[in-house]
Each structure stands twice: as structure tokens, then as C-alpha cells.
Design a protein around this nucleic acid. Structure first.
Lengths: 225, 225
DNA sequence: GGATTGTCTTTCGTCTGCAGTCTACGGCGC
DNA sequence: GCGCCGTAGACTGCAGACGAAAGACAATCC
């Protein structure tokens, strides 16, 4: 088995194109999150199929998946429409996110080991430098990576999957706001890291809850203004 | 508009058969939850199509949906296989469920009104009588209805959707256990109702957490035994 | 003039057919 | 006897086509 001398992970699967439906799915998700397809827009299957150069079938399967994940609404015998997020729904999403992230922080505090904490600190340092350099896109990406790493350290796959869903939907109805509070956010991250390193579950839960609640509040302020 | 004299809600929509894919979806879900299609089984599209008297397309779409909801694993170019739940996954699901239900109880305590509480009490009474009559199926159904009502009173749609997903998956890897603790469970429900009626968020959260944790523990005991 | 009804276009829902790929099995060489 | 290779079968992935339902618009009747 190992006698071939081939590097183990170097040639994973020859990089195939992969199932067409998945690429259609990602293409549509990109179009939706970038607002190229705005909320409420009617997605005509044949139109999308022609535009992407494929048949209707992969498009239909992609739309199905997008529907179950809450990106589009699939009205029977009428077609798919890009979901229109309401104020109420955004608030509910933020509530749920607070819940999931806080639990993740607790579990991370319970299970985290040294290498994991080192990664967190590294991400935090990079994030701070990105904020200092006013590289907003990079800061946002690092923020997502930080939370994803906390979720990974929590070691609960189910929790991670749900959080990922919720997170993407939030970031969608939310793009303009996420760019505002930069430095403050990373200071809170630093506090959170120490709590996790100390295995202080209560403190980690509390800090993460505060952190996401701050974000939620800034959303409402933005909305009101 | 109202001069037609037709009863308003009596003729809702003529009860159409509805989209075929949905009926296929429900049929397959029934077959999976009842273990007629056991975990790990290879689901062949043409076979299912022939058995249900439809074409492959609705079957494919139903399988897609089942895949995104975690019921089947869709291996590319190989087909669909009924998902095999692991011990770890079951535990993670229960953890998440505890979290979601506890939050629902808190929100319910914050928002519940008299008619809602009345419904809860009614469900509780029915549940106790079902337990007394040793009608296990009915007791299980009422238990689900009770938790669903609490979730509805919480008034958070996103939370409810996530909880519904998690709940169904739990009930699947879980059927043999759910039938054990009957009377105890309903006593806890009664306590929870009073907490909600008093708008005591802390107590409602705590009680629901205890309640679901009891369930989780009995799962592990059953598993160990 | 307003409401109603008939038709017409658009789009979805479903079915059939074909090509690509993975798996399993039998034959062959060592 | 053991392992490798070639071939056959089966299944999935994708494309195209047909029937049906929903919405829009115009003509008609009251």
C-alpha cells in the first residue's frame, strides 16, 4: 500500500470537475450573495440554464438545495424567488447566532488544547494588523475564520453545521454593517482567547454572548439610522 | 367580495395532490424513520421510482432534499445511502437540542399569553391521560406537540426551523428510548408551564435544560445497557 | 363603465433517452 | 494458489421534449 512511494495526499483525486449541480449551486449562491440577483427576483430555470450553458436539471437541483438552506423560496407551480429577508428574520437569526456561538465558546473552553489556542492567537494578530492597515475585506475574512476556528475547537459537528448556515444568511442581510466595528471586535476576541485558554467555560460563554450582542446592537443602530 | 355567501375557510384550496416530489419525499422519510430502509442501505433511484410508480426525476429531487437535511449521504457518481448515525453524532444532536429548547422556553416565558398557556395545559393533560392509558404512541406524539407549541410561543421562526430539523433526526436515532420515561416527563412539563405562565425566564430555561438533559442521560443509560 | 370570461403566453412539473463512470466478476499470467 | 487485468453490467449524471397549470391581457356582456 505504501510501497508505491507516492506521496500520500499529494494526488488526492486528480481534481475532477466535480458534479455539475454543485458548481451551479455555488454560482447561484455567488450571484445571490453579491446581490447580482436581488431579493424577490424571479429565477427562471430555462433562463439560468441558458446563461450557465447547462440543462435545466442541474439548475433545478441547485435551486432545491438553495431552498432548503433558506436562500430562495420555492413556490409550487410558480418557480423560485430569491428570499427577501425581513427585519424580524434578521433579528431572529442574530438571536440564534448568539446562542450557537456562545455554546461553541463554552465547548471550546472545555476542550481546547495548546495548538488550537495558538492558531486563535495567530488569527487574532493577523486580524488586528488587517484592521490597522484598513484592509476591510481581509479583516472580515479573518473574523469569519476566527469564529470558524472556535467552532472547530468546540468539536461539535452538528453545532458547526447549523452555525455555518445561520452565519452565511446573516452575513448576507448584513454586509454593510459588518464592516463597521473593527478594532473593538478584535479586542473582544483577545479576551475570549484568554478565557478559553484558562478553560473558564462561564467566562467564555459570557464574553462570546456579549460579543455577538454588540454586533446585533450595531445592526439595529445602523438600521435605525 | 363577501357577497358571494361562500363560507370563507371551508373550501381552502380543493386539496390538490400537490407536487409529486413532496409526496415522494414524505414517503421516503417514512420508510427511513420506520427503518424499512435501514442505515447504510443503497438507495437505487430506478428501484425507488418503479416501486413508487413515478419517474426517476421526482425521486432524485426528494433524495437531494433528504441529503441536505442529513437523512441520506449523497456520494457523487455512486448514489444515495441512508445515513448511519454514530454515537458521537447522536450526543451532539442532543446537546444542540438542549440548547435550542432551553432558549425556546426562555422566549416562551417572555412572550406567552393566556390562550397559549391554556393550550399547553390541555396538551399536558392529554399527555398524562395517554400515559395513564399506556398509549405510548399517543404519548410520544403529544410530547412532540407540546415541545412544538412551546417553540411556537417563543415566536422565533428561525429557531423553530432549526429545532424541527434537529428534533426529527434525534427521534430517529432514538425511537427505542423515547418510550421509556413517560410519567416523569409530564411532571416536568407541568413545572415548565407554571414557569412560563409566571414569565420567569430563568426558571423556564433551567427547567427545560434539566428536562432535555434527563432525556439525554436516559439515552446514554439505554445505550450502555 | 365595470366586472367577467375566454384565450394565450410563459413557465413549471414530469417523463424518456443517452453517455460517462464505478463496481463486480471471470480469465490470465506468475 | 495468488494477484492483476480486462470486460460486462448497472447505476448515476445530464440533456431534451411533452403535457399542464398559473398569470396576463383583451374582448364581451351587464
Amino acid at each position: 500500500m505504501v510501497s508505491t512511494g507516492l506521496p500520500q495526499g499529494a494526488v488526492p483525486k486528480l481534481e475532477r470537475p466535480g458534479p455539475l449541480r454543485d458548481r451551479v449551486y455555488e454560482a447561484l449562491l455567488e450571484l445571490i450573495t453579491t446581490r447580482a440577483l436581488g431579493p424577490g427576483r424571479h429565477l427562471v430555470e430555462s433562463e439560468l440554464a441558458g446563461h450557465l450553458g447547462v440543462s435545466r436539471q442541474p439548475v433545478r437541483e441547485a435551486l432545491q438545495r438553495l431552498s432548503t438552506e433558506g436562500w430562495v423560496d420555492l413556490r409550487p407551480a410558480q418557480g423560485a424567488f430569491v428570499h427577501e429577508p425581513t427585519e424580524e428574520e434578521a433579528d431572529q437569526l442574530l438571536t440564534v447566532r448568539t446562542l450557537l456561538e456562545a455554546e461553541a465558546a463554552r465547548l471550546a473552553a472545555a476542550h481546547a488544547d495548546s495548538p488550537g489556542i495558538a492558531v486563535l492567537e495567530e488569527l487574532c494578530a493577523e486580524g488586528e494588523s488587517a484592521v490597522a492597515a484598513e484592509d476591510v475585506d481581509r479583516a472580515v475574512a479573518l473574523n469569519a475564520a476566527f469564529h470558524a476556528k472556535v467552532m472547530e475547537l468546540a468539536g461539535n459537528t452538528v453545532l458547526a453545521e447549523l452555525a455555518a448556515q445561520v452565519d452565511r444568511r446573516i452575513r448576507w442581510s448584513y454586509t454593510p454593517v459588518a464592516r463597521q466595528r473593527g478594532a473593538q471586535s478584535w479586542a473582544e476576541h483577545r479576551e475570549l482567547i484568554t478565557a478559553i485558554a484558562d478553560h473558564d467555560e462561564q467566562r467564555a460563554t459570557h464574553l462570546m454572548r456579549e460579543h455577538t450582542e454588540h454586533t446585533r446592537r450595531s445592526y439595529h443602530e445602523h438600521d435605525a439610522g
